[in-house]
Amino acid sequence: MSTTVLDVQARNRARIKVPHKKAIAIFVAPFATLFTLFYLIPIGYAVWQSMLVIEREGTYGEPREVFGGLSQYAQVMDSGPFWESVGRVLLFGVVQVPVMLGLALLFALLLDSPLVKGRRFFRLAFFAPYAVPGVIAAIMWGFLYSPNLSPFKPLTQEVGFLSADLVLWSMANVVTWVYVGYNMLIIYSSLLAIPTEIYEAARLDGASQARIAWAIKIPLVMPAIILTAIFSIIGTLQLLAEPQVFRTFTSAVSSTFTPNLLVYTTSSVPNVSLAAAYSVVLALATFILSFTFLKVTQRKAFQ
């Protein structure tokens, strides 16, 4: 008896599915079209472009693009400036991302704690820098750091914020300033989603606010922290606006300072095939790094 019912249900389900396929296709079509046009095709084009090399005869012969296999990739692997720039942003990320997320978490916990007054004001105040476009923020900080144009001249003339030794960390400060509030908001909204009964239970068990934060809030918002970490890792590898703007303030930022700046410089030569190869390698590196981070943290966070 029961098997017959199941059979009928299964058959019904199978029959119902057929008309739905069309509807699904209609709903998916707009996304699929845009996804193909602006995502898959450009990626395919970039990968194809990265495999072309130029041939010509004579000093001013007409250039012809021919398939060159992976020869551009061999150049990428050999490129000193590329790996230096990757090393530079990794160093940047290892220091800046934990500092920024630590601050974001701290601010989120403070906003969420019952001890703080003026919660709405602080929420807005912390978030405001994110509303400043990245380029404008970099220009503003460039002026603040400048030894001659800064309003804090006595300080900036003593400390070379824009010198070769410090400029990377001056940029880290700009990035932190812009993104702390954004990350804070993601973590904070995840804190708001925690059911209040849990806190009540904790308080009945005699837990202090600090204990609640450490043992309940942080573990429960771990997924949000991991999400912000991944965004930050990607953002770090793609650093472009800050170094580009800082080039107008100091000699210490070379045209190959970050991987993206190197891609931009290479494409302006113009050597677009090599620039495409750099981009593909950078994209793969970003993917591997983000995915590894996710795999490592996932085991702890989602258990």
């Binding site: 995502y39 450009p42 990626i43 084009y45 970039a46 472009q49 990265s50 072309l52 130029i54 007409e62 250039p63 012809r64 693009e65 991991i226 999400l227 991944i230 965004f231 990607i234 590898l237 793609q238 993206n260 891609v263 931009y264 494409s267 113009p270 677009v272 095939s273 620039a275 495409a276 981009s279 593909v280 950078l282 994209a283 970003t286 993917f287 983000s290 995915f291 996710l294 996932q298």
Partner: peptide
């Protein structure tokens, strides 16, 4: 997981696409 990974994929490749234009042939 899936969202973050697709963001991870999407972001740098969008740039790769922007920068790929081959010299006039």
């Amino acid at each position: 997981t899936t969202r973050a990974v697709s963001v991870a994929l999407l972001a740098p490749l969008a740039l790769a696409a922007c920068s790929s234009s081959d010299p006039g042939d």
